[in-house]
């Protein structure tokens, strides 16, 4: 039986179901991933490269190539979202 999910801005994803695999002692050593932001106003924006699309062409962008210009870097949940 399938159910119809509500359509929203999130991107629903699947995942494994059933019992979680038993913890082995090795797993205890797993480093915890800490979530933190490196962004501070007045500090350098972290440089990055990213592939992209612009005006009929596939391109590669490097943030530091835009030094000397004002940059608006915008993130959004996903293409075809509707807000």
């Amino acid at each position: 039986m399938s159910e119809e999910p509500a359509v929203g801005c999130a991107r629903p994803t699947g995942g494994p179901v059933g019992e979680e695999p038993a913890n082995t002692s090795n797993d205890d050593q797993k480093p915890k991933t800490e979530e933190y932001s490196m962004i501070k106003v007045g500090k350098k924006a972290p440089d990055f490269t990213a592939p992209g699309y612009q005006k009929g062409k596939f391109i590669n962008i490097k943030l530091s190539d835009y030094l000397g210009k004002w940059v608006l870097l915008c993130f959004y949940p996903g293409d075809f979202t509707f807000v």
Partner: peptide, 22 residues
């Protein structure tokens, strides 16, 4: 990470590469 998407973040970066606001 839970939803696999990015929030609506907007960063103003000046000509020196410095974040002025977000």
């Amino acid at each position: 990470e839970d939803n696999g998407v990015e929030a609506r973040g907007r960063f103003i970066i000046d000509p020196d590469g410095v974040v002025q606001g977000y």
